[in-house]
Design a protein around this nucleic acid. Structure first.
Lengths: 201, 201
DNA sequence: TGCCTGCATGGCAGAGACTGCCAAACCTCC
DNA sequence: GGAGGTTTGGCAGTCTCTGCCATGCAGGCA
C-alpha cells in the first residue's frame, strides 16, 4: 500500500492488485457474514453483490461459484497441505507427513471459534458439504504422487498409498465431526490420533 | 398391466403404481443412455423429458433432482448397505460387517461392465461425484449407531466407531478408484482387502 | 347416465446460479 | 493529454428447480 507508487518497477502495478485484493476481501467478508447470519441457501448472490457494492457480474469474475465464496479459504487449505507434505524430510513416513500437513492446515484458522463456525456452516449445508468433499478428493489425488515416492523403498505400491491417504483424510473428517458434535471441545489433532489408533489397532 | 384389473383387492391400486413404476424406469433408462452417450453436463433435463415422452414438470415429480437420475440406484445401494449390516450376527465385528455390506452392495450391479460405466460417469463428473460423496457421508452416519452397539463390549466409543466407518468407506473408495484406473481389472473387494491391510499393517 | 371426488399430468411463470457479449470507465505508459 | 489495455456494469440468455392452476382420467354415488 505505501510502496509501489514510488519505485515504479517494484513488482509492476501494485496499486491495481491492491484494489483487486481489497475488493475480493470485501466480497468474501460480506458473504461470510450473510451466510452465518441467515444461512447459505437463504443468501442470494444478488444480496451479497448489493451489500458488497459490486455488480453480480463482477462478483462472478472474482469468485467463479457461490461455493467459492467459502472455498476461497479452502484453496489455501489445499495449497498448504501439499506444500507441507512436500517440505517434509525424506525419511519421514507417509502417516507422519500427513499428520504434519493436517496440523499445518488447522493452524490456518484465526481462532477455534471461527473454525467452529466455519465447519458448522459447511457441515450443515448439503451443497457446501458436497463441494468440500469434492475438493478434498482432488486434494487427495494431488497428494498421491508425493507420498508414493515416500513409501516406495518399503515396497508399497500406488494402490496402497491411495488407501492410506484416503484413510488419513477419513480419520481427519471423523475427528472434525466429533469435534463439531462436542461444540469445539478438545483438540482436533488429538481426536485424529485417537481415531487412527482405533483403526490401526 | 395385464393383471390387477381382475382380483381387485390384491394389493390395492396396483394398476396405477405399475404405470408409475414403468414411467419412472423409462425416464431413468433414457437419462442414463443420454448421459453415457453425450456426458452428464451436456444433457439437459428438457432433452431427457422430450425423449422419455413426459413433461419437465412430471420428470421433476418423479426425480426431485437431476442427480437423482443417477442416484436412484444409489438409494437402493444405501438401503442394502444398512440392511446387510443390521442382519449380521451379533458376534460379527464391525470390520467384517462392513465388508459384508460392501460385498452385498457390489452385487447390485448387473455386470462388471455396467458397474464400470456407471462408476466412470460418476467419477469423471464433478457435480455427480460431489453428490455421491454427500450421500456416502449420510450413509456413514446412518451406519454409526448400528456399529456402535457392535463394538460396545470391547470398550470402543462413538468417536472411534466413526473413524472406523470412515476408514472402511475410504478404503472402498480407494479400491474403486484403483479398479477404475485399471479399467475394471481384478476384483474390487480384493483391492479393498489389500488397501485395508496396508492401512492396518 | 350424469355428477363429483381424487390423483396424475402439463403448461406457465418465476427464482436463482451462471455465462457471453458489448459498451463505458478506469489506470498506465508514452 | 492521448493511446492502449484492463476492469467493470448491464443485458440477455441458459439451465435447474419450484409453485400455481387448469386439464384429463379413473372410480364412487345417486
Amino acid at each position: 500500500m505505501t510502496q509501489g507508487t514510488q519505485g515504479k518497477g517494484a513488482t509492476t502495478s501494485t496499486l491495481w492488485d491492491r484494489t483487486r485484493q481489497l475488493a475480493a476481501q470485501e466480497i468474501l467478508q460480506t458473504a461470510l457474514r450473510l451466510f452465518t447470519q441467515q444461512g447459505y441457501d437463504e443468501t442470494t448472490i444478488a444480496q451479497i453483490a448489493r451489500e458488497a457494492g459490486v455488480s453480480q457480474r463482477t462478483l462472478f469474475r472474482y469468485f467463479g461459484t457461490k461455493e467459492d465464496l467459502i472455498g476461497g479459504s479452502q484453496e489455501r487449505f489445499v495449497t498448504l497441505l501439499t506444500d507441507t507434505v512436500r517440505k517434509q524430510p525424506v525419511d519421514v513416513g507417509a502417516w507422519e507427513a500427513l499428520r504434519a500437513a493436517f496440523k499445518a492446515a488447522l493452524s490456518l484458522h484465526a481462532s477455534p471459534e471461527q473454525a467452529l463456525e466455519r465447519f458448522r456452516l459447511v457441515h450443515h449445508t448439503d451443497s457446501l458439504r458436497a463441494a468440500y468433499l469434492g475438493k478434498r478428493v482432488r486434494c487427495q489425488e494431488e497428494l498421491l504422487p508425493l507420498l508414493e515416492a515416500r513409501l516406495a523403498p518399503s515396497g508399497t505400491d500406488r494402490r496402497q498409498v491411495r488407501a492410506i491417504v484416503a484413510t488419513a483424510f477419513a480419520c481427519f473428517d471423523a475427528a472434525t465431526a466429533t469435534w463439531l458434535e462436542g461444540n469445539g471441545q478438545g483438540d482436533i489433532l488429538d481426536l485424529y490420533d485417537q481415531g487412527l489408533a482405533a483403526v490401526r489397532s
